[in-house]
Write a protein that binds this DNA or RNA. Structure first.
Length: 577
RNA sequence: CGGAGCGUAGCGCAGGGGUAGCGCACUUGCUUUGGGAGCAAGGGGUCGUAGGUUCAAAUCCUAUCGCUCCGACCA
């Protein structure tokens, strides 16, 4: 593209709402333009990167016999009513009525649509397995869109769906897509890990699911990772243990002590001069199932935190949330001094698995300014239920296959997700095939997503410097940024000639804008961050007849003749990818 | 949904009852050309919207809409 005729505008300053590097750089480099909250226009140069990501995805999925189709962005409400998600999706789904007062929605995802297509096309197990995918616009009315296209409301996603006659076949299909994802993100040049994840609302929590997380400081997700055992899991899901702790196993006397003004674990433990893991954290949670609400008292070591997702899984609830101050009062709890002993309220008490039930702990006495010390659960309470409730954290231990290591907590950006859905949707939407015995069965499904626009943002988040973006070669909008610094028409013509030469071999952005100073052009080149910059400067070329090549990533420069230009760039591009 | 802000030129911001401003960007001309050039001359605004107070409102008051940040939430 010739800039003198092209469409491109850069900015020295980023808008104030852009708080992370990828968002700031995408706006400053003229790749995207905000249209509304969480809604973006993709400008010509930015679109090229998105399309490159899409093409890499296509190439890799097509290798594994996945078939691309396109489903409608606007879908009829009936489909969602059939699966039951018209209600359960809630305000996340953007809805509308057409002129006939029929319900419509903008697809936040496409399980319903793809099952509908499947139902009308596939009748026999002999036609399975099959995997369909599309790369298409989604809309999710997020509570708080932010970080540019990283968490937009409208975004593009590759979503794939596989159908299988048996669970074994689903397992195989899942592995196939998992490996395709590894190839895709490797080609894009991302530093990623696949982590065990929580199935959330998509499944009932038993099926396998992995997230592909790009490691980046600004990531919204937390990942627990162990070098020694290779364990990697989303913190929502991670199961690790504490390093060895010195519990008080002397079975001291249970007694009430006055602990004025110590409503936090930290205050109590300072006051009692004991480590925090010798106190118990008592949390009252509301367990909500439809209209029903009950309460549970969850106990954790004083320096551990509750993982609400684990509590939710244990409770098999619609959702769980901390009891409100009012609810605590009604149950007879005193905020800051809650404990499992001498309970006034009838609530179920559960202990985290890391609590040594024979150890002695301090715990709230259920009255103002008082705690118990010497509370030994196995001695002082009946009916103890142990549950894995704690949130993993840095410094925990993970053991697997005879190996053991300390885990660390890192931030990640979720760019891909693979799920085993099972028969949830084929059942609810009554999709069947005939098996070998002529019996109608619900096939098993897998679903697999990649946020394409988010992937571009993640790549920038991972690869930039103070001057701008540093594109991985595979998704750079162009390979070569060719800039001329000319004074005479003679050199403008030479520039055009070189552009034609480069164009035959590479994707080239030609900065032929007249009358712009070198500094201006260099700043723009660094900001956009194409892998290779080539400069024809009239001043220098008059002296040595050479061209300057600069590698964006390493800042190395080379001076080469016209004859060597193409081969040198090829060599550098290969080295960079 | 809780808390906190902001809406003034394309972007970044100042002004705070009495003439609509600055920097960047944009247009024209001349000079400049190896790290966001200089000079000169320009274009661009119903100060988010609607009411109110006032001789007079961008400015004060009320409502409303939009946007953002922190948190909660979240395929």
């Amino acid at each position: 593209m010739r800039l003198s005729k092209g469409f491109w505008q850069t900015y020295k300053e980023a808008p104030t709402d852009a708080t992370i590097p990828s968002h700031q750089l995408m706006v400053r480099a003229g790749l995207i333009h905000k249209s509304g909250a969480g809604i973006y226009n993709y400008l010509p140069i930015g679109l090229r990167s998105i399309q490159k990501v899409e093409n890499i995805i296509r190439e890799e999925l097509n290798k594994d016999d996945c078939y691309e189709l396109t489903m409608s962005v606007v879908t009829p409400g009936e489909l969602w009513q059939e699966s039951g998600r018209w209600d359960s999706m809630g305000p996340l789904m953007l809805r509308a009525k057409d002129r006939g007062n029929r319900d419509l929605c903008i697809s936040p995802t496409n399980e319903e649509a793809v099952v509908d297509i499947f139902k009308k096309s596939i009748k026999s197990y002999k036609q399975l397995p099959v995997t369909l995918y599309q790369i298409n616009t989604k809309f999710r009315d997020e509570i708080r869109p932010r970080f540019g296209v990283m968490r937009g409301r409208e975004f593009t996603m590759k979503d794939a769906y596989s159908f299988h006659a048996s669970w074994e076949c689903l397992e195989k299909g899942y592995q196939t897509l998992y490996r395709a994802y590894e190839r895709i993100f490797t080609r894009i040049g991302l530093n990623f890990i696949a982590v065990e994840a929580d199935a959330g609302a998509m499944a009932d929590g038993k099926q396998k699911t992995h997230e592909f997380q790009v490691l980046a400081r600004s990531g919204e997700d937390k990942v627990i990772f162990c070098k020694e055992t290779g364990y990697a899991a989303n913190i929502e899901r991670a199961e690790t243990s504490r390093e060895k702790l010195d519990f008080d196993l002397s079975s001291p006397e249970l007694k009430e002590v006055s602990t004025p003004g110590t409503a936090t674990i930290e205050d109590v433990c300072n006051f009692l001069k004991q480590p925090q893991h010798r106190s118990l954290k008592s949390l009252v949670y509301s367990i909500i199932n439809g209209e029903e609400e009950e309460f549970v008292l969850a106990l954790l070591l004083g320096d551990d935190d509750l993982n609400e997702i684990k509590l939710n899984l244990w409770a098999k609830a619609d959702h769980v949330k901390p009891a409100t101050d009012n609810q605590l009062n009604q149950l007879g709890f005193v905020k800051g001094y809650i404990g499992p002993y001498d309970l006034k309220a009838k609530v179920k008490v559960i202990f985290d698995k890391e609590i040594n039930l024979d150890g002695a702990y301090s715990t709230g006495a259920n009255k103002d300014d008082a705690h118990f010390t010497g509370f030994v659960p196995s001695r002082d309470l009946k009916d103890i239920e142990k549950v894995d409730l704690r949130l993993s954290k840095s410094g925990d231990i993970h053991k697997a296959d005879g190996k053991e290591g300390v885990v660390e907590e890192i931030s990640g950006i979720e760019v891909g997700h693979v799920f085993q859905l099972g028969d949830k949707y084929t059942k609810s939407m009554n999709a069947t095939v005939l098996d070998q015995n002529g019996k109608a069965v619900n096939p098993f499904m897998g679903c697999y997503g990649i946020g394409t626009t988010r992937t571009v943002a993640a790549a920038i988040e991972q690869s930039h410097d103070e001057d701008g973006i540093i594109w991985p070669v595979t998704i750079a909008p162009y390979h070569v940024h060719f800039a001329t610094i000319t004074k005479t028409s003679e050199y403008e013509e030479l520039g055009d000639e070189i552009y034609d030469l480069l164009k035959e071999n590479f994707e080239v952005l030609y900065d032929d804008r007249p009358k712009l100073g070198p500094g201006f052009k260099f700043k723009d080149a660094d900001l956009l961050g194409l892998p290779i910059r080539v400069v024809l400067g009239e001043r220098d070329h008059k002296k040595d007849s050479l061209f300057e090549i600069k590698v964006r990533k390493t800042k190395e420069t080379f001076k080469v003749s016209k004859e060597d230009l193409i081969s040198k760039i090829k060599e550098l591009l290969e080295g960079a990818s």
